[in-house]
Design a protein around this nucleic acid. Structure first.
Length: 727
DNA sequence: GTAGGGTTAG
C-alpha cells in the first residue's frame, strides 16, 4: 500500500494486527511512522496497541514517550482502555512501578469496573495486599461500580495469600448473593482461600457445590489437601485418581506437582512411578515443577539415581552448562573456557526461564544436595536479573541450607531487602535442621520484632529447633503461644515435634501422656517419632506398642520393621530379630537400601554398603583401615548393634566399616585434601556407629564434617556434633 | 477492533 494513501483506519487495524500477533516491534515502528504523517492523528486503538507492543518488546522508554503523548492528546479522559494499558506499562514494563501506575489510575477521570479491578489486582500481585483491599473499599464506597467475578476472584485470592479469613467469608457471601457461585474462577479462588486458611472442609464444600470442574478446580483442591498435610495427602491421591477415572479433565503440571508431593509424603512410594508414567504420557514430565516433584519424590524414597536423572534433565534443559564433564580431560578443558562456555550457553537457552523455573531448579538441587549445581544456578539467577526476586531468594536460602552451607544461606538472607514469612521460616528452619537452635530462636524473635506474622509452618520450624537441642520449657512456651497469641491451631506435625522433644530428652512417659492428651488420634508420623526415641533410650516395651500402632496404619512401612528390629538387636534378642525378618519376607517388604553420596568437583559419588565398584575403591578401603586404627587409639569403640547379621563379632566389625557413610567420608578425605568442610548425604537416618566414628574421624583429621540424613544435619567438628541424638 | 481474575516456593 502506498504510504500516502493510508488513513487512520488502516493504520489502526494494521498496528493492532501486528500487536496481537506477537509482532510487537513492527507495531511500534508502524506507530512511529504514523506519528510522522501529516494530517493523521492516532486514535485510541493505535495507542493501546502501541503501548502494549512497547511493553512486549521491551521499549519502555518509547512507552514513556507515548505516555506524554496520551496526556497531551487528552485520551485519558475519554478512553478507559488507554489508561489500563498505561497502568500495565508501569507495572509490567517498569519493573513493578506501582507508584506511577497508581498515579495514572488516580488521574483517570473516566473509570469503570475493569479499571478498578485492574489496579486492585496489580497492587495485590506485587504484594501490596493492604492497599489492594483499601482500594476495593474505596471502589465500593465512592465509585458506584459493583464488583464482578473478576474483582471478587482477585480479592478472594488476596485473602488466601494473607489468610484473611473473615474478609474472605464476607466475599464468599457476596459471591452467593450476586449469583456468581457457579463461576469456575470464583470457585477456584474460594477453594484455594479456604485451604490456605486451614479450612479444607470448606474448600471441599465449595468444590462439591460446583456444577462444573476444570483442571484448576481439581488442582486447587488437591493442592489444598497436600498443603494441609498430616495424612490429608491420601485424600489428595484419591482425588487425583477420581479425576483420572472420570477422564473429562486432563491434569496439568500444577496437578502433577501437587500429587507428587502427596506421593512423596506417603510411606509407600509405589504410586510414584505410575504418576511419573502418566506425566510422561502427557508430555509434562520435563516441566520444571513436575520434574522437580519427581526429583524430590525419588530422593525421599532413596532412589538417588532416578532423582539425579530427573534433576539432570531439568538442569540441562534450563542451564545446559558444562556438558561433558565426565572424564578428567574434558573437566580441564571446560575449566579453561568455562566462563565463555557458560555465557554462550546461557545466551542459547536463557530466554523464557521464569523465576519459578529457578525456584524449582534450586529446590531440585536442594533435594539432591548438589551445592555445585546450586551455585551455578545462583550465578545464573543473578545474571538473568532474578537476583532480587523474593521466591528465588527464598529458594536459595533453602537450597544452601539443605546443601549444608548455612553461612551461604544466611548471606542470602542478610542481602535480601524484602522478606516475607516464607523467607523467615526458611532461614529459621535452616538453622533448626542444622541443630543451631539458639540462632534459630534468635531469628524467630527478630521476625516477631519486624512485625512479620509467623504461621503454622514457622512454628514447626521453631518447635523442631527446640526439640533438636532439648529446650523443653522454650518449646512449651511457643506451643501455647502459637494458639493463644497467634490463633494458629497446632496440627499433627506440631504435636509430633513435641513428642520428639520429650522422647529425645528421655521423658518417654511424658511423651505417651502427651500423645494421649492430643485432641485427635496420633498418626503414624507421631508414633514413628516416638518409636525412634524408644530405640534411642532402649525401651522395648513402649517401642513395641508404638510399632504396633504404626503398623496398624501402615502395615508395609519398612522403616518401622527396621527400627523394631534394631531395638531387639540392641538387647541381643536375636530370636525376635529373625522373627521380624521373617515377617518382612512374608509380606515382601524390603528394606530400603541405604546409600550415601558426596559431591566432589561437581560430580556426585554414591556409595552403598560394601561398595567395590568405585574406581578408587582400593584407596578408599586403605584409608578406612588407616582411620579405624587411628580412631580406636583415641577411644572409638565399634558398636555392632547396628549390624543385623547373625555373624561373629569380628565379621560384624568388618561389615560395620563398609557402611556407606564411612565410605563416603573416606573418599572425601582422599579426594579433597584441603580444609573445606566435607558434606555427606544419606538417604536414610545416619547409622549410630557411623555417627560416633565420624566424630572421632573429625578429631583425628581436624576436618569439619557435615552429614545430612533423612532427618537433619549433623555438624561434626572436633569430635562434637551439633545435634543431640543419643546413640 | 482495544483493558481485568483462579494453582507452584517453607
Amino acid at each position: 500500500m502506498d504510504t500516502n494513501k493510508r488513513d487512520i483506519v488502516s493504520y489502526s487495524s494494521m498496528i493492532s494486527c501486528y500487536a496481537n500477533n506477537g509482532n510487537s516491534s513492527k507495531a511500534v515502528n508502524m506507530f512511529v511512522e504514523l506519528l510522522h504523517q501529516d494530517g493523521i492523528f492516532p486514535n485510541e486503538y493505535c495507542f493501546t496497541a502501541a503501548i502494549r507492543s512497547c511493553l512486549d518488546s521491551g521499549f519502555f522508554e518509547t512507552g514513556l514517550g507515548l505516555f506524554g503523548f496520551v496526556l497531551k492528546a487528552g485520551y485519558f479522559d475519554s478512553h478507559v482502555c488507554v489508561g489500563c494499558e498505561l497502568i500495565d506499562m508501569f507495572v509490567k514494563g517498569g519493573g513493578g512501578d506501582l507508584d506511577s501506575a497508581r498515579k495514572v489510575f488516580d488521574r483517570m477521570r473516566e473509570k469503570n469496573v475493569v479499571t478498578w479491578t485492574l489496579m486492585i489486582t496489580r497492587l495485590a500481585q506485587f504484594g501490596f495486599h493492604g492497599d489492594a483491599i483499601g482500594l476495593f473499599l474505596d471502589m465500593l464506597v465512592s465509585s458506584g461500580y459493583v464488583p464482578d467475578r473478576f474483582t471478587l476472584t482477585g480479592l478472594i485470592s488476596v485473602c488466601a495469600e494473607i489468610e484473611f479469613l473473615s474478609f474472605g467469608k464476607e466475599l464468599h457471601s457476596w459471591v452467593i448473593r450476586s449469583g456468581l457461585a457457579l463461576d469456575l474462577c470464583v470457585g477456584c479462588s474460594l477453594i484455594d482461600m479456604y485451604a490456605k486458611c486451614g479450612l479444607i472442609r470448606d474448600s471441599r464444600r465449595v468444590f462439591d457445590g460446583m456444577v462444573d470442574h476444570n483442571v484448576m478446580s481439581w488442582t486447587a483442591l488437591i493442592n489444598g489437601y497436600v498443603r494441609g498435610g498430616g495424612g490429608q495427602e491420601r485424600e489428595a491421591m484419591r482425588l487425583f485418581s477420581d479425576m483420572m477415572l472420570q477422564g473429562c479433565v486432563a491434569p496439568n503440571c500444577f496437578t502433577f506437582s501437587g500429587v507428587l508431593k502427596a506421593c512423596a509424603s506417603l510411606p509407600d512410594f509405589g504410586f510414584g512411578e505410575q504418576i511419573h508414567g502418566q506425566s510422561i504420557k502427557l508430555g509434562l514430565s520435563e516441566i520444571d515443577c513436575v520434574g522437580n516433584g519427581l526429583v524430590s519424590l525419588y530422593a525421599r524414597s532413596g532412589r538417588t539415581e532416578c532423582a539425579q536423572k530427573c534433576f539432570d534433565v531439568l538442569f540441562e534443559k534450563n542451564l545446559v552448562l558444562c556438558s561433558g564433564v565426565d572424564d578428567d580431560a574434558s573437566v580441564k578443558d571446560s575449566n579453561l573456557n568455562s566462563e565463555q562456555d557458560l555465557d554462550r550457553k546461557i545466551d542459547y537457552t536463557g530466554k523464557g526461564a521464569s523465576s519459578f523455573t529457578y525456584a524449582s531448579l534450586l529446590s531440585g538441587a536442594a533435594c539432591i544436595g548438589t551445592i555445585g549445581k546450586g551455585e551455578q544456578i545462583h550465578a545464573r539467577v543473578v545474571k538473568m536479573g532474578f537476583g532480587t526476586d523474593l521466591s528465588v531468594n527464598n529458594a536459595l536460602i533453602s537450597m544452601y541450607s539443605k546443601c549444608g552451607n548455612k553461612e551461604a544461606a544466611l548471606q542470602v538472607f542478610n542481602d535480601m531487602e524484602d522478606r516475607n514469612v516464607i523467607t523467615w521460616t526458611s532461614i529459621i528452619n535452616g538453622f533448626a535442621k542444622h541443630g543451631f537452635a539458639t540462632k534459630a530462636l534468635e531469628l524467630f524473635y527478630d521476625m516477631l520484632q519486624t512485625g512479620v506474622k509467623p504461621n503454622d509452618v514457622t512454628y514447626i520450624a521453631v518447635l523442631s529447633a527446640c526439640s533438636h537441642v532439648g529446650l523443653i520449657d522454650e518449646a512449651w512456651k511457643h506451643f501455647t503461644s502459637m494458639r493463644n497469641s497467634h490463633g494458629i491451631v497446632p496440627r499433627m506435625e506440631h504435636y509430633a515435634c513435641m513428642v520428639d522433644l520429650f522422647g529425645r530428652s528421655g521423658l518417654l512417659s511424658e511423651a505417651i501422656e502427651f500423645i494421649n492428651s492430643m485432641p485427635f488420634d496420633a498418626d503414624a508420623l507421631v508414633w514413628r517419632t516416638f518409636l525412634g526415641s524408644c530405640r534411642v533410650h532402649g525401651n522395648t516395651e513402649l517401642g513395641e506398642h508404638a510399632a504396633k500402632m504404626i503398623l496398624e496404619q501402615e502395615p508395609h512401612d519398612p522403616a518401622t520393621y527396621i527400627l523394631l528390629s534394631n531395638l531387639y538387636a540392641s538387647e541381643g534378642r536375636w530370636d525376635d530379630v529373625s522373627a521380624i525378618r521373617k515377617r518382612m519376607k512374608q509380606k515382601q517388604i524390603t528394606k530400603e537400601a541405604g546409600s550415601s553420596w558426596i559431591e566432589v568437583e561437581n560430580q556426585v559419588h554414591k556409595f552403598h554398603v560394601g561398595d567395590t565398584l568405585h574406581p578408587k575403591a582400593k584407596k578408599i578401603y586403605e584409608k578406612l583401615d588407616e582411620l579405624a586404627l587411628k580412631i580406636k587409639n583415641v577411644g572409638y569403640v565399634p558398636n555392632t548393634d547396628f549390624v543385623l547379621h547373625d555373624v561373629e563379632d569380628e565379621q560384624k566389625e568388618q561389615y560395620l566399616f563398609q557402611h556407606s557413610e564411612k565410605l563416603a567420608v573416606a573418599f572425601a578425605l582422599i579426594s579433597t585434601p584441603n580444609s573445606k568442610p566435607i558434606r555427606v548425604f544419606k538417604n536414610l537416618r545416619v547409622c549410630g556407629d557411623c555417627h560416633s566414628a565420624i566424630k572421632y574421624i573429625s578429631t583425628v583429621t581436624g576436618r569439619e564434617i557435615v552429614v545430612r540424613d533423612a532427618n537433619r544435619f549433623h555438624h561434626i567438628k572436633d569430635g562434637k556434633c551439633s545435634c543431640n541424638d543419643y546413640w
